[in-house]
């Protein structure tokens, strides 16, 4: 519940960012560089004299949105392929499993750099690339789940009333994988946050002057010795967000487990 509350709060912050930022996140104050926390700058300023709190608030939106793009792409590819492979088996299953295995072996950074090289640096482009790497993870979980569900008696029951395979996939298999899918998504969302931060840190994700928590973290790195606290704030924010996603996933997993036990399978 706490985790869900935190996510809701961050979403709200992202939506009203423009009204609650105490300063312009990009206004530089070259006289007040690396200022410690004060009444005007609650979290201090960075090496260009920009208000860190404002930059964190400004970056909330991108930080939240980026993992959702990646997970969205991952589900869009992984879910249907996983369902079809798990239900129909055969050559399609064999082929898609090999492709998924191959994708697992591609280093994320490499793919991100390749995309940046081809299409230029942009948050959306990079996160779509990350989404392609998430797809095999979604694929594997869904395929395994479908392999189990297709053995369930209620699937046989659906076949005997004359339901077509597509109907069974839509009405029986999909709803019964929903729980697993949601849990897997929360795990990937957490990973997405970390990946976005890492990519921004390397400068191939979100592009300055647009702020994201990863960008703020990168900036603080330059003044690590003068103002170590600067890297703590975005660090804590990222950690909390990842944890929030994880806890929400755990919560969903538990409530689903309960239902399944009651349903008796």
């Amino acid at each position: 519940m706490v985790a869900l509350g935190l996510l809701a709060l961050l979403l709200l912050v992202a939506l009203v960012a423009d009204w609650i930022m105490p300063h312009d996140p990009n206004a530089q104050d070259l006289l007040g560089q690396n200022a410690p926390p004060s009444a005007t700058h609650p979290l201090g300023t960075d090496d260009l004299g920009r208000d860190i709190l404002s930059r964190l608030i400004d970056g909330t939106g991108v930080t939240l949105l980026a993992p959702f793009i990646a997970v969205g792409v991952g589900v869009l590819i992984g879910l249907p392929v996983g369902m079809l492979a798990g239900y129909f088996r055969g050559i399609f299953d064999w082929l898609s499993t090999r492709v998924a295995d191959a994708l697992f072996a591609v280093p994320g950074i490499l793919l991100a750099m390749a995309i940046v090289a081809i299409r230029g640096p942009s948050t959306v482009n990079v996160m779509i690339g990350v989404g392609v790497l998430f797809a095999p993870r979604v694929f594997r979980v869904i395929r395994a789940e479908v392999l189990a569900i297709r053995q369930a008696t209620f699937v046989d029951a659906a076949r005997t009333i004359g339901a077509s395979p597509m109907r069974i996939l839509r009405n029986n298999i999909l709803p019964n994988t929903a729980g697993t899918l949601i849990v897997q998504c929360t795990v990937l969302l957490g990973m997405g946050v970390l990946i976005e931060a890492a990519l921004s840190f390397f400068g191939i994700g979100v592009q300055p002057p647009q702020a994201s928590w990863g960008v703020v973290l990168r900036r603080s790195f330059d003044s690590l010795t003068e103002a170590p606290m600067q890297s703590i704030y975005p660090g804590i924010a990222i950690t909390l967000l990842v944890l929030a996603f994880m806890y929400v996933g755990d919560g969903i997993r538990e409530s689903i487990g309960k239902e399944h036990r009651e349903a008796g399978w």
């Binding site: 209620f154 046989d156 005997t160 009333i161 029986n172 019964n176 008796g264």
Partner: peptide, 26 residues
């Protein structure tokens, strides 16, 4: 397959375990 799906109406089955034969999400 498609012809069989139509024909299946004529012969229905009731399974042993009613906890497993009814989709819990329906």
């Amino acid at each position: 397959r498609s012809a069989l799906q139509k024909q299946r109406r004529a012969m229905q089955m009731v399974f042993q375990n009613p906890y497993a034969s009814l989709d819990p999400t329906s």
